[in-house]
Simulated scan of single mutants.
Amino acid sequence: MATDLIERHVAAVLARLRSDQELTDSVYEGDVRDNPERYVNVWHDVGVFSQRSLRGEHQDVEITFTVHSVGTEMWQATWVDGRVLSLLNDWKPSVTGRRCWRLEPAGTQPIQKDTDVSPPKLFAVRRWVLRSVPARETP
């Protein structure tokens, strides 16, 4: 198992989001720099590994992504969320050495207000699950 397995999956998702010209400079992974008016913040877990091979190897992975679409008001957060949805919904990432499934929606939350920042922001939350297995060469 490659030590950068999770990083490669995360990089594919971030690259997909940054491919949108409206979001290119406003996609973050955790820490948000400066104080952008609108942005996307991607959080992910460290992967759940499972054993599905006859050899007992734990190489199948499932990664959950939680994406916050943030704006200064509700409709701006909704606009950002719409762009994220159009990019990630039913998209199948390409990760070297892996066979990925399409991202699977895993829930949303109502738009919320973050008063811990100044000025306050509103954010929408969506979750996706990404599953992948090692790419196998066929004889």
Rank of each mutant, 00 (worst) to 15 (best):
Ser118Arg: 13
Val129Thr: 15
Glu37Asn: 03
Gly97Val: 13
Val13Asp: 01
Trp128Arg: 12
Glu7Val: 13
Leu88Gly: 05
Thr72Cys: 08
Leu130Arg: 01
Val46Ala: 12
Ala135Asp: 05
Ile111Asp: 06
Asp25Val: 04
Tyr28Gln: 11
Gln51Lys: 09
Leu87Gln: 05
Cys100Met: 08
Lys113Leu: 14
Gly97Thr: 11
Pro36Met: 05
Gly97Glu: 03
Val13Glu: 00
Asp31His: 01
Thr72Ser: 12
Pro36Phe: 00
Thr78Arg: 10
Asp114Ile: 09
Pro93Asp: 01
Asp34Lys: 12
Leu14Ser: 08
Ala77Glu: 04
Phe65Lys: 10
Leu54Glu: 15
Arg55Val: 11
Arg126Phe: 05
Ala15Pro: 00
Val46Ile: 10
Arg18Trp: 07
Phe49Val: 06
Trp43Gln: 10
Phe123Ala: 03
Lys92Cys: 09
Thr64Trp: 11
Gln112Arg: 11
Val129Pro: 14
Ser19Cys: 07
Gly107Leu: 05
Glu73Cys: 11
Asp34Ala: 15
Gly56Arg: 10
Ala135Trp: 13
Pro93Glu: 02
Cys100Leu: 06
Leu5Ile: 14
Ala11Ser: 13
Ser69Thr: 01
Arg8Trp: 01
Arg99Pro: 05
Glu137Lys: 15
Gln59Ile: 13
Met74Val: 15
Tyr28Asn: 08
Val48Ala: 12
Asn41Gln: 12
Asp60Met: 10
Leu5Gly: 06
Arg55Ile: 14
Val80Leu: 02
Arg18Ile: 04
Val48Thr: 15
Leu23His: 08
Pro93His: 00
Val117Trp: 04
Trp79Ile: 10
Asp45Ile: 14
Leu88Cys: 10
Val40His: 01
Pro110Ala: 13
Leu122Ser: 06
Gly97Arg: 14
Thr108Phe: 04
Trp91Tyr: 02
Thr3Glu: 02
Gln51Arg: 12
Pro139Ser: 10
Ala106Gln: 07
Ser94Asp: 00
Asp25Ile: 01
Gly107His: 14
Leu122Arg: 04
Cys100Glu: 03
Val125Ala: 02
Cys100Asn: 09
His68Thr: 00
Asp31Cys: 07
His58Thr: 10
Thr3Asn: 11
Ala15Arg: 15
Arg102Thr: 12
Leu122Val: 13
Ser118Pro: 01
Phe65Tyr: 15
Leu88Thr: 08
Thr72Tyr: 07
Ala124Met: 01
Glu73Gln: 13
Arg18Tyr: 09
Glu57Tyr: 08
Glu7Cys: 07
Ser50Leu: 06
Ser26His: 15
Arg55Leu: 15
Asp60Lys: 02
Arg98Gln: 14
